[in-house]
Amino acid sequence: MEKTNDSMLTEFVLVGLSAHPQLQTAFFVLILWTYLMILLGNGVLISVIIYDSHLHTPMYFFLCNLSFLDICYTSSSVPLILDSFLTIRKKVSFSGCMMQMFLSFATGVTECVLLGMMALDRYVAICYPLRYPVIMSKGAYVTMAAGSWVTGLLDSVVQASLAMQLPFCANNVINHFVCEILAILKLACTDISINVISMAVSNLIVLVFPLLIISISYIFIVATILRIPSSEGKRKAFSTCSAHLTVVIIFYGTTFFMYAKPKSKTSVGPDNQDIIETLISLFYGVMTPMLNPLIYSLRNKDVKVAVKNMLCRKSFSDEM
């Protein structure tokens, strides 16, 4: 343990899987490959949406924001994760740790809110198709996306500011791959009731409330789809929502496991619970952003056609 005190704390030590060195090489290769797939998949999806004018709609605007968020989220943490696998004890400066925590938390919160906005978009598209262009005007959907980003940044400012004011005394060893806020709160040598209350309020606003919006939206969506007389119409209507619903289930499943119940300070020694939470966090941090573009691409005919058209035009240009 690095000896320091609350007034002289200048760095943290990331533990990660140092107690399981046999897993580090395998995880390094897996995460590096996953990160490259995240950059490629989300980058292609953003390029296709920008390139094809047929995809300049509210749904794809939100999807473009989601892909950009996934790139930002993983880029704020994955390089640190990869570096931690290369050294037994990875030291991170206090300011660097707080900055990484701020960026990861901000993008994570933004994604929670954005998924709620995307559910509202699908609700209007299915339940009020004739009024959809009027309700979801450019001003409306741009404001909804901007509101998601602002909410994420403001919430992260609050949580990071409270965490930065905590005294950490002699304990600066984080049982995690990255500077994750719950792992940092465990290290404080003071009462963290304010932080726990703040996290609970944050969870209510950015986890429970968006999930409530998503649930209510899909109740109305399903009710509307069931009233469609033809089976083909039902299939087409549901296909416009299935990708979003799949992403919501994966994202919220892992997020609720990590953040639904803010944990108070516990022992710093790595135990089975720490390892399980770390691996779940790893899945939440890298696997979900990799799956998102695959889910939207494989289940969306318009995206597949746009990718094919872009590749064909690029091949034609190269031949010229």
Results as ranks from 00 to 15, higher is better:
residue 107 T to V: 13
residue 16 G to M: 08
residue 44 V to W: 08
residue 28 F to W: 12
residue 79 P to M: 05
residue 58 P to H: 00
residue 181 I to T: 03
residue 126 I to M: 08
residue 204 L to T: 14
residue 304 K to P: 01
residue 75 S to H: 12
residue 208 V to G: 04
residue 309 N to I: 10
residue 296 Y to L: 04
residue 217 S to Q: 00
residue 192 I to Q: 01
residue 147 G to V: 01
residue 182 L to H: 10
residue 244 H to Q: 11
residue 6 D to T: 12
residue 299 R to H: 11
residue 142 V to M: 10
residue 24 Q to W: 01
residue 306 A to V: 04
residue 277 E to P: 01
residue 232 E to W: 09
residue 180 E to H: 03
residue 153 L to G: 01
residue 244 H to G: 07
residue 95 S to W: 10
residue 174 I to E: 00
residue 67 S to V: 03
residue 63 L to C: 03
residue 241 C to A: 12
residue 258 M to E: 12
residue 180 E to A: 01
residue 227 R to N: 13
residue 272 N to T: 13
residue 77 S to L: 10
residue 284 Y to D: 07
residue 284 Y to C: 03
residue 79 P to C: 10
residue 82 L to D: 07
residue 80 L to M: 15
residue 256 F to W: 07
residue 263 K to Q: 11
residue 89 R to M: 13
residue 188 A to L: 06
residue 316 F to H: 14
residue 197 I to D: 15
residue 165 Q to R: 13
residue 169 C to G: 12
residue 220 F to Y: 11
residue 193 S to N: 11
residue 261 K to R: 10
residue 8 M to F: 15
residue 122 R to F: 04
residue 159 Q to T: 06
residue 55 L to W: 07
residue 90 K to S: 07
residue 309 N to C: 14
residue 272 N to F: 15
residue 43 G to E: 09
residue 2 E to D: 13
residue 317 S to Q: 14
residue 18 S to D: 14
residue 245 L to T: 08
residue 140 A to V: 09
residue 225 I to D: 06
residue 98 M to V: 07
residue 112 C to Q: 03
residue 40 L to K: 12
residue 275 I to Y: 06
residue 251 F to E: 03
residue 306 A to C: 13
residue 232 E to I: 08
residue 56 H to C: 15
residue 160 A to E: 08
residue 133 P to C: 07
residue 258 M to C: 11
residue 64 C to T: 00
residue 278 T to S: 07
residue 174 I to L: 09
residue 189 C to Q: 10
residue 37 M to V: 09
residue 90 K to W: 05
residue 47 S to P: 06
residue 203 N to L: 11
residue 169 C to I: 01
residue 150 V to S: 08
residue 291 L to P: 01
residue 226 L to F: 10
residue 237 A to Y: 09
residue 284 Y to I: 07
residue 34 T to V: 14
residue 209 F to H: 03
residue 204 L to R: 09
residue 52 D to H: 02
residue 113 V to G: 00
residue 91 K to D: 02
residue 230 S to C: 05
residue 198 S to C: 14
residue 290 M to D: 03
residue 180 E to K: 05
residue 198 S to F: 11
residue 162 L to H: 10
residue 252 Y to Q: 01
residue 197 I to F: 15
residue 317 S to M: 13
residue 85 F to C: 03
residue 7 S to C: 11
residue 265 K to C: 13
residue 209 F to W: 02
residue 24 Q to D: 12
residue 146 A to W: 10
residue 49 I to R: 03
residue 84 S to I: 04
residue 138 K to N: 12
residue 186 K to L: 10
residue 285 G to K: 01
residue 30 L to P: 03
residue 76 S to Y: 04
residue 191 D to M: 06
residue 168 F to H: 06
residue 181 I to V: 12
residue 192 I to T: 05
residue 21 P to F: 09
residue 212 L to P: 08
residue 269 G to H: 10
residue 93 S to N: 10
residue 90 K to D: 05
residue 271 D to I: 04
residue 131 R to K: 14
